[in-house]
Design a protein around this nucleic acid. Structure first.
Lengths: 210, 210, 210, 210
DNA sequence: ACTTAAACGAGACGGTACGTCGAGTCTTACC
DNA sequence: GGTAAGACTCGACGTACCGTCTCGTTTAAGT
């Protein structure tokens, strides 16, 4: 086994890292993921290829970190502008579960339709489908943290009797989250506020007559 | 799928077509989709590269047709062995909606875990996420026909009062189908009979107390 | 041992070969041998790098063949314009050995000072010093054929008693050829007609008093 | 050799210099000149790359100095063991010019066949052919000092009437030195005592009958 | 002996070229 | 005219070194 000399991260150039994130996200947006090349990212970032290969193992890896960084930046910005830090990532708890879920799903719809996020997140999702290692990172670092918020909200609803006690929240949340995700990813049908509202209604009250 | 100037399909070599399908599916299974190359398929199939470029527009296109062909072959085989043609693709209608759905979802679980199908269908799904044109073909030719069967079954359930009248079956089916699809695609959690049974129960009776 | 698939030389593109020779010679002349790159040759020749790697094993190899080709072309041209074919490569035999040697060495001086030949032949000579395989090819294909002509001329001189019988012509020729070669290669001193004339005189009559 | 802005040579690390010389010579011997890299020398010498770039302008420059140093070391060693300092670099003058020349050329043959000297001196000679600046340094610092000894010896021979008065010693010496050099550099033929003896005889008495 | 500025080792950086792989096009010979 | 074979141009891959540029850390001269 050949040893990689383990680069010294204290010496790492912050400027280059930022430039690489920017270039990667921009290029994926402009020309699409498959036509985004490491050479292209390096050129656009004004960086040597080796600087990319030194710190990341693949194009997908660069993009994943760039995307995570994008999220952190957005979070910091939001946190800076007011409210408790991290608060905007919680699901509201007004006491009305249906309303709260509809609200947050509508926000998700907005985000999914935001062209700035679309290309990179599609690319990552696609890569994750086929590349197990990247897929697991994608899920643990991006997806699960989001889903945990739903678990919390559903548990809190269970406590006040708005959700039946036996229900497993981790499965329950999929009834409305997964359909939205799949419509977006696979373009089986357009997504809209009306659609997500309907999902919440169906999920809460069931398909069968009561 | 995309037509090139004037290939005369009557003179097409059936043997080459089959060999290309086989080679494509085998290679995707052996080395994965990204490392499957057109040159590799041609070499494995004992075919000139031009023969592939003449009849298909891309690697994804070859694989899609190969996969559709695989399905047709399976169907013919099943049909040949007994039962009405196409019957095995319908969802049973025993009068008990929950049981019927659980039954067919369990069959889907089996299929999704079949390693022969896994690599190519993952590859196609991934490609479809990023490549809109291929994605639409994938959905119309493979996904939607399946989903239509659920729509039919749900409509029949509505007629006998097992599903509330106002419910849109096209949306309703997503409550149990999409979660399964997403768990499989994104590996957020393992899939099992128990899991799909639970999905059906939750979807039919809702999360809220009755 | 990995097999190279042995390219089919009957299919080789003559146009590309010519373009590569031209580009290689031009570039060596313009920017010097070390700054001449295979990529540069390919670009200048309007050719893919692979086409170079398919037919040659190294930069030096390309240049050697290009140079040999240049010689052949020059020979053909000269042959076409008159005289017996190959005649211009023989050393004249007027009966006066000293005069004949001086004549041909003066021609060599002219050639060595011709800027068109200088860069590539220097490059090849240098490479040959350090790269044994290339060196041997250089010697057998370019140098020895020239030297053989001197051997012939000296032998003919021996027959008419202008050179002592015991003398080994292969060594004798070095007395005037090698000094010229070394002055040129190593720039120890300038070369001129006067210099080569002197060499011939010294070599024929010796340094010691008679 | 080329001066960089202001490196203070009084503070220079002698240890590093030695280590760099050693590493350079060893590497050229082990992997050949072209595969010897500055990074490789630095690593092998346990030295930062900058330390090399601070004191030398190129790989060839390092090697030239390393080689000169090697010569000086050899000289010092020889001087230390006996004889007058520098004496071993003179050509003996026993009164018999032929014998003296044969003796010293035999010593040169021994040196040229010494594998320790072979790789670096070949490398330097080759580089000098193509790189004019390095070539001139090579000639003035290594070659000419040697050749001057022959000039002296020939002049002394002239004084005692063993060489004709009109002969230019600087040219005369090339009659036997250059052939040896060229055979060694270009491997046109093997070198031996017999060969150099013959050269001396031919050069002194000429090729023509007397 | 203490200070302090240089030379030093280490190695990250922006680059250039390497030699390889595959894409998609084109040509040749065969059937 | 479709086909197997494979040479062609082109573009990207991941690697190796280039020469420059920081980083601490010796280290030796001048206080």
């Amino acid at each position: 086994m050949v040893k990689k000399p383990t680069p010294d991260s204290t010496r790492r150039s912050e400027k280059s890292r930022r430039a690489i994130y920017d270039a990667a996200l921009t290029l994926v947006g402009e020309v699409g993921y498959p036509k985004t090349t490491i050479e292209g990212i390096a050129a656009r970032a004004g960086v040597g290829k080796q600087t990319i290969y030194r710190w990341w193992s693949s194009k997908a890896d660069v993009l994943l970190e760039a995307f995570l960084d994008l999220g952190e930046q957005a979070a910091e910005q939001a946190a800076g502008q007011g409210g408790e830090p991290g608060a905007e990532y919680a699901i509201p708890d007004t006491g009305d579960l249906a309303a709260d879920l509809k609200y947050v799903l509508r926000a998700t719809v907005d985000e999914l339709l935001d062209p700035k996020f679309e290309a990179p997140s599609r690319a990552l999702a696609a890569e994750g489908v086929v590349n197990e290692q990247l897929g697991r990172e994608f899920v643990t670092k991006l997806l699960e943290p989001q889903l945990r918020l739903y678990v919390q909200r559903l548990r809190s609803a269970q406590e006040v009797g708005q959700v039946r006690p036996g229900i497993d929240p981790r499965i329950a949340l999929e009834l409305f989250v997964s359909p939205l995700a799949q419509r977006w990813l696979q373009r089986t049908a357009p997504i809209s506020y009306e659609y997500t509202d309907t999902l919440v209604d169906y999920a809460l009250h069931g398909l069968a007559p009561r």
